[in-house]
């Protein structure tokens, strides 16, 4: 997808506008998505790994990896995107491990969140801030 400089700036401005909303109003979306995923169950901190660059050279293509021993599914959210859902990985009986990597779009510096559903029905969560740079060179 070919973002022009202007469109990229607009995306960034959109993200900036979102961060100006009252924290509660915005956080609800992520919370709602997590609640939907967990069915309202308690979510422990840790027990799921999320690898993402501290600084992404371009928000259009940010490599991330998630893993959680014994997880049956891992949901990834990007809290600062216009719509936070990114992907949900469901691991089948022939999964060699509960891990996956992909490349995602981030509309600005924000927290990426991973929530794992464990085989025993419990849930674990982690998050990581990814700084997205806005370069000087539009091209």
């Amino acid at each position: 997808m070919d973002f022009t400089r202007r469109e990229t700036l607009a995306l960034g401005a959109g993200a900036a506008a979102l961060t100006l909303l009252p924290a509660g109003a915005y956080a609800a979306t992520v919370d709602e998505l997590v609640n939907e995923f967990t069915g309202g169950a308690d979510v422990a901190d840790g027990g799921v790994n999320l690898d993402a660059p501290e600084i992404a050279e371009n928000g259009n293509t940010v490599p991330i990896s998630v893993s959680a021993d014994g997880a049956t599914a891992i949901m990834v959210l990007a809290a600062g995107n216009p719509t936070p859902p990114v992907a949900t990985f469901n691991f089948g009986p022939l999964a060699g491990s509960s891990s996956a990597s992909t490349r995602i779009r981030l509309a600005g510096t924000q927290d990426v969140i991973a929530v794992a559903k464990m085989a025993d029905g419990s849930f674990a969560r982690t998050s990581k801030e990814v700084k997205v740079t806005i370069g000087g060179c539009g091209g």
Binding site: D2, F3, T133, I134, G135, C137
Partner: peptide
Amino acid sequence: NYIRADHLSQGHINGFPTYRLKQANLV
């Protein structure tokens, strides 16, 4: 050096056409 957040290279073209993450396409 940096121009805003862009790390300036020497501008060689031995990697072209290149896949730019920004365009998500060959450039």
